[in-house]
């Protein structure tokens, strides 16, 4: 159920990319898809009654070993979030440059003005 709803979030972004003709809207759809994928990966590593994979002085080691959530997807998603910021900044730069060239964010207009 949680996985299916997470997939619905991903598909909302996909629908945005398929139907919208505004470049900023396409960037927003890309960002929503990325959110869905990141959340899905972290959901896969959760354990019931899970504890944070950070050891403290007062941590009971036996309880920690039995209930710690998976640290591997969290570590990979951590890098993925920051890469997402970089790629979306690149996309926004492209949008601004296209606006300078054509005066619009609409890709249909841009295609018409090209020829």
């Amino acid at each position: 159920m949680v996985f299916a709803l997470c997939f619905v979030l991903f598909l909302t972004g996909l629908y945005c990319i398929l139907t919208k003709k505004n470049t900023v809207k396409i960037i927003i759809g890309l960002s929503i898809m990325e959110a869905g994928v990141n959340l899905f990966l972290v959901l896969l590593g959760y354990k019931n009654d899970g504890v944070v994979p950070i050891i403290d002085r007062s941590t009971d080691i036996v309880h920690f070993l039995a209930y710690s959530v998976d640290p591997l997807p969290q570590a990979l998603v951590l890098t993925s979030i920051v890469i997402g910021l970089g790629t979306i900044a690149l996309g926004i730069a492209l949008c601004m440059r296209l606006y300078v060239k054509y005066g619009t964010f609409d890709i249909a207009e841009i295609r018409r003005l090209k020829g």
Partner: peptide
Amino acid sequence: ISFLFLAAPDLAIVQIAVEVLLLIFLIRAT
């Protein structure tokens, strides 16, 4: 907030900071 419930405070900190920056970039563009 979902990352906080999923026992991933590292991701929660990074996500909220990245989201603020992303919003500033997007608002600057639009």
